[in-house]
Write a protein that binds this DNA or RNA. Structure first.
Lengths: 187, 187
DNA sequence: ATATCATATAGGCATTTTCATATATGCAAC
DNA sequence: GTTGCATATATGAAAATGCCTATATGATAT
């Protein structure tokens, strides 16, 4: 899957592994992430498959850069992935829910502390998305050489981030209240 | 992480790998899943670590079962995981959002078809959660030998499933409309 | 009769992901 | 001066995960 994230970005313009890491961290972080070492490995694999090409670019004052460029085969591969029907939901893995599920094995106080901690993290994430203005997205779009249609899709993923975090915070608040009430009834 | 899911269930009562697969598929599927072969591997690892023990149970008319039982060390390990603070959000991986992000590379018709397909899958998932009555949860609880407090936590994870699917469908509807409007404007 | 399904365990292989580490440069901080 | 940070690439080891296959039994379906 990371393969397509890399092809997707290289479809805009040539980039290095380091560039891609920064771009992923700032734009797809909330629905796709990757470790720097994994990015380098995947780029090598893509070059071996002939989906991208690379060339070394010397820099004064900084280490050499290996710049990757997408090939026609790469573009075709990306396109066929984009068009392939998605017949399944992406399965979720959510550590907090796993913990909550088994939380009868510990004290409500311990659970509440963790829920409150998570609330603050998700509040931060929400603020991050809300702080992204249309001007920011426009700026990213220009840097990537993106088309007007890109802005629509990029904003849709940003909107998904907002809805997700709002939902998550709502669930946390609800759950914190329910556990607190349960605790009061016990007394 | 699967390790703790297995310890969590074995903390209620002794179970086989096959049992655990069925239980995970019916109760934690929407926030934690695992392949059967992965479950068997993890159980072996847990036994080697001394967190669980196993014994063979012969059955007439069916293959022998290897029944796993949690040890005191296993219980202690589970408890310390439950109490450990969770300082990070679980990172998401969502294929649909990755595709949408790069969808300027294909036709809006192709994107819309995939969004509608996903809508039907998420609608199904929502119906599944809404169909789970308190009686069903009560039934599961009795089978597992669970305490009253468990029902509260289990229902919280079910509620998370409902909110998540409602949010997802809302985002899909919004996004379908926005892409459709964009398409009309183009004409 | 034959095929498939549910039960039950497990090995093998490849891929994916994470974590730690190594190298190299130049700049800023202390 | 030396420590740490940003830039830049990469390897190695280990863990986690996913997919396929093999084995065995009895029941059910066609």
């Amino acid at each position: 899957m990371l393969k397509y994230a890399l092809l997707g970005f290289l479809n805009y313009r040539p980039l290095t592994g380091y560039d891609l890491k920064r771009i992923i961290d700032t734009s797809t972080r909330h629905f796709w992430h990757a470790d720097l070492s994994q990015i380098y490995k995947t780029l090598k694999m893509l070059e071996t498959s002939g989906l991208i090409m690379s060339s070394i670019e010397a820099q004064d004052e900084r280490p050499d850069r290996r710049v990757y460029t997408i090939t026609d085969a790469g573009r075709a591969d990306l396109k066929s992935w984009l068009d392939a029907p998605l017949l399944e939901m992406t399965p979720l893995k959510e550590v907090l829910l796993l913990k909550v599920f088994f939380s009868a094995g510990t004290s409500p106080e311990s659970v509440l502390a963790q829920l409150r901690q998570q609330r603050s993290l998700h509040q931060q994430a929400l603020a991050h998305f809300q702080g992204q203005t249309p001007a920011d997205i426009e700026h990213n779009a220009q840097q990537m050489g993106a088309q007007p249609l890109d802005a629509l899709y990029w904003d849709a993923t940003r909107r998904a981030g907002i809805l997700y975090e709002e939902m998550y915070i709502r669930w946390l608040d609800e759950t914190i209240i329910r556990i607190s009430q349960q605790r009061t009834e016990r007394e």
